[in-house]
C-alpha cells in the first residue's frame, strides 16, 4: 500500500542529480529501494540514498525524458511511496572498499555511513565524467571515509576510469568486502578485480520494474528477481549471469542490449 508524502527538501547535488527528502517513518536499510509515484506521470523504483531517521531520501539522475522531467518537480509536491523493498548490504565487514560510478554512489552512501558509525574502515573510490558530477564525495569524507576520486576528463582526482583507482587501492591495502554500484561494465570490472584478490563483493543492480513484489517478472535477471532477490547481489552471482553487463528487458519483456 502506498503512502502520500510531501517532498520536504530538494537538493541539486550535481548538474544532473537531484535528491528528494521526504518524511517516511518505515524502517529502511542501506541497499533497499522504494517505489516512488509521481501522480499523473509514472512510478519508478529508486534506491534510498538516505535510510536513517524519520526523513528518507532518494537521489535521481537525469537519464531519459521521464527522469529529466521528474527532476524539475519542486519541493512541496506530493508523491506516493511504497516499500521499502529488496535486500540490504551486509554491514558486518570491518574493512570495506566502496566503488561508486556516477549516481551509483547514491545507493552506497547510507551503508558506508552506517558502517563507519559502527567502527568499520571505509575507503571510497568514486568515479564521474567530470568534477562537477562527483556525487557525495564531501558527504562520505565528512562521515569519516577515505575518499579517492577519478574523472573521465581529469578535472579531479585520477584521470580515467575509476577501476584503475580500485586496482591500486586493492594492491595497497587489505579489504574484507567490496561494494559497488554504477554502470554494469564498471561493476563487472570491479567484480573481476575483487575475485582476483579473493575478496567478497556485493553489487546493486537496476532493472525495469513494475510490481516490485516478485510477481510480474519484469525485473527478472537470470533465475532472480531484482525486486525481491536483490537489488544487492554477490558479485560472484552477477558474474555467473549471462545477462549481467550485456542485456536488460524492456517494458514488454524483450531482451535488449544494455
Amino acid at each position: 500500500m502506498h503512502r502520500i508524502v510531501e517532498i520536504e527538501d530538494r537538493v541539486l547535488e550535481t548538474p544532473s542529480t537531484v535528491t528528494w527528502r521526504f518524511p517516511y517513518a518505515e524502517p529502511c536499510a542501506p541497499g533497499q529501494f522504494v517505489m516512488v509515484w509521481i501522480p499523473g506521470d509514472d512510478e519508478l523504483p529508486m534506491s534510498l540514498s538516505y535510510t536513517d531517521g524519520p526523513s528518507k531520501g532518494v537521489t535521481i539522475k537525469a537519464m531519459g525524458s521521464t527522469t529529466r522531467h521528474v527532476q524539475s518537480i519542486p519541493a512541496g509536491t506530493r508523491i506516493g511511496i511504497r516499500g521499502p523493498y529488496g535486500n540490504r548490504f551486509d554491514l558486518t565487514p570491518r574493512r570495506i572498499l566502496v566503488v561508486g560510478g556516477g549516481s551509483g554512489t547514491a545507493v552506497l552512501a547510507p551503508g558506508a555511513e552506517r558502517a563507519l558509525r559502527s567502527g568499520a574502515q571505509v575507503t571510497c573510490a568514486l568515479g564521474a565524467t567530470t568534477e562537477l558530477e562527483l556525487l557525495f564525495a564531501k558527504r562520505l569524507t565528512a562521515a569519516g571515509a577515505r575518499v579517492e576520486v577519478s574523472t573521465d576528463d581529469g578535472t579531479a582526482g585520477t584521470p580515467g576510469f575509476v577501476t584503475a583507482v580500485v586496482e591500486r587501492l586493492l594492491a595497497e591495502g587489505s579489504f574484507d568486502a567490496v561494494w559497488t554500484c554504477g554502470p554494469e561494465v564498471m561493476m563487472r570490472k570491479v567484480a573481476e578485480l575483487a575475485r582476483s584478490r579473493g575478496i567478497v563483493g556485493y553489487g546493486s543492480v537496476e532493472r525495469h520494474m513494475k510490481c516490485a513484489l516478485g510477481m510480474c517478472d519484469a525485473c527478472s535477471l537470470g533465475p532472480y528477481h531484482v525486486c525481491v532477490d536483490g537489488p544487492v547481489f554477490r558479485t560472484e552471482t552477477l558474474l555467473s549471469l549471462e545477462e549481467f553487463g550485456r542485456t536488460k528487458r524492456d517494458p514488454s519483456g524483450r531482451r535488449v542490449p544494455l
Binding site: 500500500m1 502506498h2 519508478l44 511504497r82 510480474c216 524492456d250 517494458p251
Partner: peptide
C-alpha cells in the same frame, strides 16, 4: 511486443 500500461500498475492491500 506490448509494453503494457505505465506504472503504477499494482496496488497491494494488507
Amino acid at each position: 511486443p506490448r509494453p503494457g500500461y505505465p506504472n503504477p500498475t499494482v496496488e497491494e492491500f494488507d
